[in-house]
């Protein structure tokens, strides 16, 4: 089945109030074009799940600054002072997780399981007494799986069956989110016919993907961020 859709059709499937996973660690993997369309369509009350908040004025920070996001489930927002300010002012609800625990919660949902046991953060304030489980003489923290209604992802290459290939450090959370969301929307600047990839080189099999949006070109959002270049 061909899964290509226009960007308008693909994003129109998302209602206000949806829980949306968004790929990317910093810029790489952030689906800027899908995010722009979500900004344009204006859905509100969104819960976003993303490693970071991008930088002020970029990526999901635009959705946050536009008041479309009520809650952000994340690991680190240190590069986005706007997001920190909104959090401190009580205008944005932020839930922090250790980065690998967030990844594993998403992976666990993606694998069809419901939770796992860990010792990470056992002694810290992120662990509540009700999260603890004594089992066979050891104390563990229970981490529940984390799923979502939608995932928005960027793939370097895709075919119209939804097979995906990521590039560089843009892999990060994307293959995990592809597995954990009920409806997966992918943007790609390079859409091929099936058979284009060597089967063993595919990172995400098409079974997890619902719609593929072909991008005519990548905007400047995807380029080098000058202040991260060391002179």
């Amino acid at each position: 089945m061909k899964k290509n859709q226009t960007i308008e059709q693909a994003i129109a499937a998302i209602p206000s109030g949806a829980r949306v996973m968004i790929g990317g660690f910093g810029n790489p993997g952030t689906p800027f074009s899908l995010i722009h369309e979500l900004l344009r369509q204006g859905q509100t009350g969104l819960t976003l799940i993303k490693n970071d908040a991008n930088e002020a004025g970029h990526g999901i920070s635009k959705l946050i600054e536009n008041g479309q996001v009520s809650r952000l489930i994340t690991t680190h927002i240190g590069l986005n002072k706007r997001a920190i300010d909104l959090m401190n002012q009580g205008q944005l609800d932020i839930e922090f997780h250790p980065q690998g625990i967030l990844a594993e919660k998403i992976r666990t949902a993606g694998a069809g399981s419901f939770g796992f046991l860990t010792d990470i953060g056992l002694d810290s304030e992120i662990t509540r007494p009700e999260d603890l489980l004594d089992w066979q003489g050891q104390t563990y923290k229970v981490e529940m799986a984390l799923s979502a209604d939608f995932a928005l992802l960027h793939a370097a290459e895709a075919d119209w069956l939804g097979n995906l290939v990521y590039r560089g450090s843009a892999i990060n959370f994307s293959p995990l989110m592809a597995m954990a969301a009920d409806h997966v929307i992918v943007e790609t600047p390079s859409l091929a016919a099936p058979g284009h990839f060597r089967p063993e080189h595919i990172h995400t099999p098409g079974a997890f993907v619902d719609s593929v949006v072909s991008l005519a070109q990548l905007t400047s959002d995807y380029g080098i961020i000058d202040h991260h270049v060391r002179r």
Binding site: T75, H76, G78, I84, I94, F96, H97, P98, I101, I120
Partner: peptide
Amino acid sequence: PGIGGAME
């Protein structure tokens, strides 16, 4: 800023 990878 958040926990990031630091805790693990």
